[in-house]
Nucleic acid binder design. Sequence first.
DNA 1: TTGTAGGCGTTATCAA
DNA 2: TTGATAACGCCTACAA
Lengths: 316, 316
Amino acid sequence: MVTLSDVAKEANVSKMTVSRVINHPEQVTEELRGLVQQAMETLDYHPNSVAQALVNNRSNVVKFITLEDIDTTEPYYMNLLFGFAQGLTKKQYALQLVTDPKQIGQGRADGYLITGARNEDYEWFDKLKKPFVLFGENHRGYDFVDTDNQSGERIATEYALSRLYKRIIFVGIDVKEPFEYSREAGYINTLQKHQMIPQIYRVGNHSHEAQKLIKDNFKELKKDTCFICASDRIAVGVIRQLQKEGARIPDDFGVIGFDGVFLDQVSNPKLTTVKQSIFKMGDLLANMLLQKIAQSGSPQGEIMIEPTLVRRETTR
Amino acid sequence: MVTLSDVAKEANVSKMTVSRVINHPEQVTEELRGLVQQAMETLDYHPNSVAQALVNNRSNVVKFITLEDIDTTEPYYMNLLFGFAQGLTKKQYALQLVTDPKQIGQGRADGYLITGARNEDYEWFDKLKKPFVLFGENHRGYDFVDTDNQSGERIATEYALSRLYKRIIFVGIDVKEPFEYSREAGYINTLQKHQMIPQIYRVGNHSHEAQKLIKDNFKELKKDTCFICASDRIAVGVIRQLQKEGARIPDDFGVIGFDGVFLDQVSNPKLTTVKQSIFKMGDLLANMLLQKIAQSGSPQGEIMIEPTLVRRETTR
DNA sequence: TTGTAGGCGTTATCAA
DNA sequence: TTGATAACGCCTACAA
């Protein structure tokens, strides 16, 4: 294993000079800096992150905390996780996965990414002793990255209108969480802009609940209706029941989902959906968290990522 | 932060005695051991794994390597990953996620878990410089954990027969990999035991390919047939086309999947399937890998986990 | 059986 | 601007 000392010898300088070239290059004269960099290259030197961690009193580990049940959770988090992991690896960080909140304080970690937080969780956030960032919009001042939910449903609704569906119904998720409010707001604002009256249903985020909703209300539905759904799961349920009722998709009924992870591709017909850039958000979250750690916990703000509409077979 | 020294002072012994109580307790007299353990408790001491890693020339990090494309991959790996992570955390290990084989040698890691390996991958395994274990059966002597694929399809086939389906057709995955051979063998052996003639189709592991298969062959299908499918994806495709053809499930046609992750639950009707204990296998893989690391790479053998049949709505 | 000295690879501090 | 020294927390080797 090549160490600082090896590089120092090779370049005929002290270990400290090498260390400075790595951490504070501006403190070293250009000449020596060149020599050292040359030496690092020829020896193929890479700093030992464990030793760095020790002196800096770090662990080079962060925790990825999932407060939602992963069994019922979509492949969603898989993408987030891989994006997050990519962001961490750039900085030689590794991660631990946590599903049990009790485990958060155990072991060593420099910070946390918290996902799937609900209103009731926020209470204990302030007791956390390490920096953390959230995946999911909130309005309590915690740093976060999320999709621009409002914009996403605005785009979906505008698209439905542009395809000349006469009625636009929103099928939301039955939770009182910021992301849901934002999605509904995107829908409502767009309809109002077009002087139309919003019509909103809400169900639990399961395909069979959405399916039941359609079943119970199918008689009252008219042709030329498009359903804006707050998740692909819901959209899949809507589609399934529409098909059972013999309705024609996309000619008489349109369906637009939200998420664009996995489910949208296995559904049949393939789902038009608002696709979140989940992998990218994971990467951004890693950057945000590592930066926050480096800045000993200073606020990082909020990042909202624009989703994209993917047009497939459930809209005409 | 409580360190070895703090404990040593508290117990009125040297640091080394404390260290020994942790790593080689048998070398310490019972009396001192008691004192030290007492001191560790009252101070709530936990060894600093970073310092341990430094002296042992370890990183306390392992890599989770996914050779399959995660976009097309099922939630499958999510469960494996969480099980694996749980096993690691017990030993204060963290993980890095790797999808690009080129990244394997980069950075620091003590070992690898390799998943999704295909025949063509085995070439470069021997060049790996760190211990590794595989998820997925192989017959080249590499340590692995996997479901007992043969047993799984044996159970599925026996069950189909017990439900009095007269014809049992196997729809496999069109790859020449050990897991597929094992699944087919489970089916073939069971049929032969009952003096029946195997009938095997193979398609790519996508629902629409399975769907097409049924579409192309539906005319020749007779009632009282059960499909043993090598994956839930395939099963979902089979079901979809059977429904389109107006066939009655499960009365005239039975369908049994394989995997039992996510897809089986969102399908409609709910899928009878051979469920793998993926989370558990992840945990076992972590133990196996950490043990292998601790034993500087010595062979760990093979572990096959028995899957369980989950009876739901696609068999009568 | 227990303790002392030294070192793992890096960085902060202070002196030159 | 550069270098010597000590320290981070732990463990191996050796001595007592």
